[in-house]
Amino acid sequence: MATSPLDQFEVTPILPIQVGGLDLSYTNSALFMTLAVAGTVALLTFGVRRRSLVPTRLQSVAEMLYEVVANMVRDNVGSGGRQYFPFIFSLFMFILFGNLLGMIPGGFTFTSHIIVTFTLAFFIFVAVTIIGFWKHGLGYFGMFFPHGAPAWTAIILVPIEVVSYLSRPVSLSVRLFANMTVGHLMLKVIGGFILPMGLIGGLLPLGGLVAITALEFLIAVIQAYVFTILTCIYLNDALHMH
């Protein structure tokens, strides 16, 4: 039986794979990534398999998700964001399913691992920067100096803007990682109080646990949304500058 609240974050190999001294084992983390992909693909292809004019319940869900992300891209990026829509959509579904699958008791939350969120955020950061330079050439350096500010303020503003730009992948990845980690820690810690406090006294942490579980579901959805919308905003900056 698990004793530490940190045990839930343990990565354990299911199928050990070694490639040239590199450990690429198929782990519980990889399993839940696979489940997230399978869940998303199942929902979006199985639900729409009949292509009904009047959607079934599952098709409605798929269409709703499609439209939520499509509207997000349209509102935040504009028509130039259409070609990035599949990526934004995949990102949203991957994180959403990662967060929600983590709510299954005994499950694994791969979005609570900084290396996962940072890899995603870093990829987005690099991609957005490449898109920015590709669209605007060297003019993309204008990102680091606000339009219309007096020239001498460059000494102060440019370093600030550079730091803020470079900290984007950090803030993006840490936000998701911290939210997921803290939420799941809290659930485990409070859950751990229930049995030791006895039949009557344990009711209090049990009530708290129920409330926090509900809150965690909300956070799971909100954090997926926030991660995606920030990606849209960064993409918009790259496409249109500011």
């Binding site: 696979t34 996962v116 890899t119 995603l120």
Partner: peptide
């Protein structure tokens, strides 16, 4: 676990 997580993240 970093290498394995990055690898499977990219694959999935």
């Amino acid at each position: 676990s970093f290498a394995s997580q990055i690898f499977w993240l990219i694959v999935s």
